[in-house]
Design a protein around this nucleic acid. Sequence first.
DNA 1: CGTTTGGTTAACCGTTTGGTTGAACCAGGC
DNA 2: GCCTGGTTCAACCAAACGGTTAACCAAACG
Lengths: 208, 208
Amino acid sequence: MTVPADYSDTERDIFDAALRVFARDGQRGARMQEIADAAGINKAMLHYYFRSKEQLYEKVFAFTMRRFMASFGASLEKAPTFEETLRVFIDGYVDFVRSNEDAMRLMVNENLTGGSLLGEHLREATEAGDAPPAILVETIAAAVEAGEIRRVDPDHTVLSVVSTCLFFFVARPTVQVMHPTAGEDWDAFVEERKEHLFDLIYRGLSPE
Amino acid sequence: MTVPADYSDTERDIFDAALRVFARDGQRGARMQEIADAAGINKAMLHYYFRSKEQLYEKVFAFTMRRFMASFGASLEKAPTFEETLRVFIDGYVDFVRSNEDAMRLMVNENLTGGSLLGEHLREATEAGDAPPAILVETIAAAVEAGEIRRVDPDHTVLSVVSTCLFFFVARPTVQVMHPTAGEDWDAFVEERKEHLFDLIYRGLSPE
DNA sequence: CGTTTGGTTAACCGTTTGGTTGAACCAGGC
DNA sequence: GCCTGGTTCAACCAAACGGTTAACCAAACG
C-alpha cells in the first residue's frame, strides 16, 4: 500500500523508486536517470507515465502525504484510559514511521525546501476530516477535561509527541553513530525508545 | 560568528550564501549559480575561493557542524539544581537553533542524504571533547545519581530533549499551517514552546 | 494473416550545470 | 609611470540534465 492501488507493475516500480530518490535528494537534487535506474526501466518510461519530473514529484508527494496523515488515525485506537490510548498511539505511530522511513523523509525534505505544496494538501486533508492530528488533539483535550492529565495545551502536546516519535528517524545516521545500541540493532533501539517515550510523556502529563 | 574568522569579505558572502542554499536544497539540489547570485558575486569567484562545489560544501558543513556541536556546551550552564540546569539548557538551545535555522537545516539535510560526512566529523568532535552531547548525558546521569530525577536512560533522555527542541524548527512550514499562533507570531510561539517543553520534560523526569 | 494497440527502447535534442580561461581591474611598492 | 599580486568578470566549454522521437515488439483483434 505504498503505491496507489490502480497502478500497473511498471507504474509501481517507478513510484517506489521515485519515492526513494526524492526522499533522499529532494525535488531538485533528484535525477530522472537515477529514478529510472532504481526502477529498472528506461528513462523514457518516466515521461510516458508521468509526463515530467514535476508531475512525478507532485503525484508521489500527494499520495505520500495522504498516507502519512492517515497514519494518525490508524495509530489512534480509543482505549478505556488515556494511558492505554497514548501507549497504543506511540507504538502504532512509531511502527508506521519505521516501515515508511522514505515517506517521512519526503515530508521533511518538503519542509526544508519551504513546503509550498504542504499548505494546500494539509488544508484539503483537514477539511476532508480525513485523519489530521486534530483527532489526537481532541483526545488530549478530552483527557484534560476528564482530569486524567494536567491542564496542558493539546496542540503543543501533540507536537511534542510527534517530535519525539519522528525525530530519531530523521536524524537516524547521527543517532546510529552516537548511540551504540542504535548502530548495532536498530529495531531493538526503536523498541527501547517506545518505552522511554511513553514513560517520559505519560509522567510529564500526569496531574499534579 | 556564522563564518570562519580568517575569511575575507567576499569569502564571508560566499560562505553565508552557500549555507543558505545548501540548507534549503541539499548538496545535490543546490546550484552554484544560485549561490553566486545570493552572494552578489560572479560564479567564477566560487571556484577561485573554493575550487569546487564539493569542497565548498565540505567547508560549509564542517564549520557548521562544529558550531552546532559547540552549542550544546554553550547552552549548558551548571546551575545549583537540575531543574534550573534543564530550564537554562532548553532556553539557550532553542534560542541557538532559532538564530541558526539554516545551520540546523543543513545538518538535517545531511542526515536525510545518508550523512557520510557525519561519522568522521562526529568522532573527531567527540575525541576532541569539544562539546558533544556527552556533557548533557553526564549531567543527567549525575542528576539520576543525586536522586533529583527518576532512573532514566540518559542517552534516550538527551535524544528526547533534543528532538523536542529541534523538530518544530525542522517542520516549521507544517507547524505554521497547523498552529495559528505559530503562523502569526513565530517568536511568541517559540517562547510558549520553551515553557511547555520544560514542564513536560521536567515533570516527566521527576522521581516517583 | 495484416493491423492495431500499449508498452519499451536507443538515440537524439536543446538547455542547464559545474568548471575554466584570459583579459581587465585595482590596490600598493618601487 | 609601471610593475606586480591578488581579485573580478564575461565568455566559453564539455558533461549532465530533462525531455522527445521514431522505430520496435508482442499480444489482442478482426
